[in-house]
Design a protein around this nucleic acid. Sequence first.
DNA 1: TATTGTTATACTCTATAACTATA
DNA 2: TATAGTTATAGAGTATAACAATA
Lengths: 155, 155
Amino acid sequence: MSGPSAPPPTTGALRALPHARLATDLRAATLRLARRLRQQKADAALSDGLVASLGWVLQAQPLTIGELAEHEGVAPPSMTRAVDKLVEQGLLRRTVDPADRRRVLLETTDAGRDTVLETRRRRDAWLAPRLAALTPDERRTLVEATRILKELTRS
Amino acid sequence: MSGPSAPPPTTGALRALPHARLATDLRAATLRLARRLRQQKADAALSDGLVASLGWVLQAQPLTIGELAEHEGVAPPSMTRAVDKLVEQGLLRRTVDPADRRRVLLETTDAGRDTVLETRRRRDAWLAPRLAALTPDERRTLVEATRILKELTRS
DNA sequence: TATTGTTATACTCTATAACTATA
DNA sequence: TATAGTTATAGAGTATAACAATA
């Protein structure tokens, strides 16, 4: 867009940062797409937070309440409550760590795993037809872009 | 549900949809990046919902409470409360529509506009250095990908 | 003593239902 | 009668502070 030869016709928020135009556009597009994706979930009775927590347990199990709380960016007491709900609904199993009996180890139940997979399936089901409407070149671009986006959040 | 010709070598969530692999990867990468971006905001006292609402008003003003509520995906009473807070903090201005006195028209104040721009600036400030660490080719890919992502959310 | 997790309590955000004002 | 918005009220989610159990 803005080459090195011409001064970019940008306003306030865009000044002073290299690649500011890309940052701005990518930010807007990402937040918008994420918002649409979050609207799709397996169980409407599960909040976004519970869905995200359950998904991370499936991916990182076994893990402790504290570890899960930190990953999800909530305080430990909040995670205790969230885990209580997931356990009540039969989606999560909690066991005391035999090596350190202060710690609680979390794992998904079969139903919990199914819920996570179903949520992912629904989100993909929203996305996949839209991807199918793109050109092969555009899809190749997104494949590469996905790899790059993952890198961005690594640090 | 499964494909008619060859069974794809994928597991649960990936079956039955074309471009499912891309959908899954893109979904994960997008949600993760969005989460990081949302953590950056101008005023820590402003919730994500208030930040998003204020941002949309700046972009779409003047608009009514009902229009804003629908765009943000919340019920009208919730938006009445949210707008009350933004007005109290001097970020939003509400005026009765002279053409239809049931309606309320919302506009940002100067302070509201500044808050939105500052939030965007911070999010970009988080993102831009990471973009600078990429190769020129990778940035070109993201520029094109951003255009495609915008298309995905158009429908 | 330090760490892990829980309980107690309060605040924010959201929703539904009922209401007011205007069309 | 229908629509835009508000008020009343309740439920979910989160936080901080204080506590219990374990290391």
